[in-house]
């Protein structure tokens, strides 16, 4: 199967196989007018199978969201057909307004306009806790 290369845009590579649609929605790519390709189950020497998203436009990608969803992802910025920048991600220390606390006893469930803040507590498991009630939110869940 052939898909055109990106001339000026972004390639999100090494997405765990099957998770590209989730990332597509988290990054709100459905709102873009430009060409977006989702390639699933690509053969990978490193991971066996992977997904790739190609975006034919240079946009601001929320690296915190990607780092939280899957820290193995790499983001390539392409200009004039060449990879100008390759970014390896890591789980962000803090997530602001990306997750919502599910603990019904947490103050965030009743207080209006409070930021939902989660802090990384375990890098290996990519685990986050709500700063207010310490309820656990697992990375990638």
């Amino acid at each position: 199967m052939n898909i055109d290369g990106v001339t000026n845009g972004i390639v999100i590579d090494h997405i765990a196989a099957g998770r590209s649609m989730e990332i597509y929605h988290y990054l709100k790519l459905e709102k873009l007018d430009s060409c977006v390709a989702i390639i699933k189950n690509v053969r990978s020497t490193k991971y066996g199978k992977k997904d790739i998203i190609k975006i034919d436009e240079i946009i601001d990608v929320d690296l915190d969201v990607l780092g939280y969803l899957d820290p193995h992802i790499t983001v390539n910025i392409v200009r004039d057909g060449k990879v100008m920048k390759k970014m390896n991600l890591e789980p962000p220390r803090e997530l602001k307004n990306i997750l919502k606390c599910k603990n019904p006893r947490c103050i965030t469930t009743t207080e209006q306009e409070i930021d939902q803040i989660f802090r990384l507590v375990n890098e290996e498991t990519c685990s986050y806790r709500c700063v207010y009630c310490e309820a656990l939110a697992k990375g990638g869940d």
Binding site: R105, C106, I107, T108, E111, I114, V131, Y132, C133
Partner: peptide, 23 residues
């Protein structure tokens, strides 16, 4: 009764806040 309410209070307060129990 809500967990984290004193932390929120401390973020909004201009005087010292003491947690006297949150949930």
């Amino acid at each position: 009764p809500k967990e984290g309410a004193p932390l929120l209070a401390s973020q909004r307060s201009s005087v010292p806040v003491i947690n006297a129990g949150d949930g």
